[in-house]
Amino acid sequence: MNFAPKILIIFSIVIFVFSFGQTTPPIQDSVDIIPVWKVNEIKNIKVKSTTTDIVNNKKTIAKYQYDAHFKILKVDENGYDVEWLFTNAIISKGGDFVVEDNIFSKLENQRILIRISNTGKFVELINRETLQKKTHMIVDELIAKEKNPKIKTEYQIVKALISIKDGFNNTLLKPIGLYYFYFGNHVKLYQKQHNNVTLPNPFDDEVFSAEEIVEMTQLSSDHSSLTIETSKKVPNDKVKKSYINLLTKTKPDQAKQIIQPFKNSEFEFSEKRKQIIDLKNNTVTSGIFNTIMKIGPHSRTSLWEIEGL
């Protein structure tokens, strides 16, 4: 039984998170990434995603892009109410697509209302119930029309995930989480922050332990812009052990036969982020979020790119 492709689908959904590790006290050549936004202020963004799957040496590439903007609706001492709108969605031609991207494209011009803290951290999705109801209807229609059993199963997986609070955020609000990822943190030039963090484990109930490294690699002389990078990586042997344990539990009577092809295979679970932030205008100039999950001959690389306009 081939578990890897389905596992990669789940991985690409649950990996996304909205915050990173500890912060450090203020020191020289350091900045606080704190937004100061006004009511009716609008920020325009372009978002692109590229998902590359390799299964038994066969490569497929799915591309998706759209325009977006967010508008500040309310400002108070605790934070901001923000409206996001996504428009002009374009899914790659040729039939290859990621199911959650296809679902999200059906939410064009749908108001997404979120709450952001006074430091710029994502707090909550205000109109969650409305969006969940509409999204469930969209997914049900897609499932009813889909003739490919594999794609139908993927839609069903996504439907289950978006029924959960965090699952909806992680599945469909990735670009929003990416945009606000570094806000609310304090960073120092050339000083690497080493944090012990956890990442979701698609093979087991136990999360993966990982090391996170955060570093501001560039800061303008007038402190008006910066470049910040983050990397996370799970030890390869931990990924391999967890996956083999899954195979063993699922098919104990065929364990040796199933495990054999993976004994000398490569395993990887890692992610990298990078953003250039305009501190003067409180905007993200550009950003990338790249994740890799490799399970022997099967791998998925997901690349998200955002560009401030």
Rank of each mutant, 00 (worst) to 15 (best):
R115A: 14
N185W: 03
V75T: 00
F20C: 02
P175W: 07
P175D: 04
V31C: 05
F70I: 07
D96H: 12
S270G: 05
T285E: 10
G79L: 09
S92V: 01
F104M: 09
L125P: 02
N195P: 00
K46G: 13
K106C: 06
K133L: 12
E266T: 11
N56I: 12
V47Q: 13
N88E: 06
K251I: 13
V123F: 03
K232W: 11
K188D: 12
T87I: 04
R273S: 03
N57Y: 06
V75Q: 01
E154C: 04
I61M: 06
F86I: 03
K159Q: 12
Q254G: 13
Y155T: 05
M293K: 13
E305C: 05
T198W: 03
E206V: 06
G95S: 03
E146K: 04
V82I: 14
T230S: 10
K74T: 09
Y243F: 15
K121V: 02
A62K: 05
N201S: 01
I112E: 06
S117T: 08
V98H: 08
K63F: 00
I10P: 01
K192E: 15
E41M: 00
L246T: 08
K63H: 14
G120A: 02
K134E: 15
N127H: 05
K106Q: 07
I176L: 10
S49K: 13
L125I: 11
T153L: 12
I114F: 07
S209M: 09
K240D: 02
E129L: 11
K238H: 13
S231N: 15
I151M: 06
S19L: 03
V197A: 08
I15K: 07
N56Y: 12
E77K: 02
S19P: 03
L246F: 11
K272N: 15
A89L: 06
E83K: 12
I15R: 09
T227M: 04
V75S: 00
V36N: 15
E206H: 08
K256P: 01
I143V: 08
I258W: 03
E108Q: 13
H186D: 09
D205W: 02
K263M: 10
K159V: 06
S30D: 07
A62D: 02
K238M: 14
K233R: 07
V82Y: 07
G167I: 04
L189N: 03
M137L: 11
K150D: 14
Q110R: 10
A68T: 11
I295T: 05
F203G: 00
K256M: 09
N195Y: 07
L219T: 05
S30C: 05
I116S: 08
K272G: 15
E100R: 15
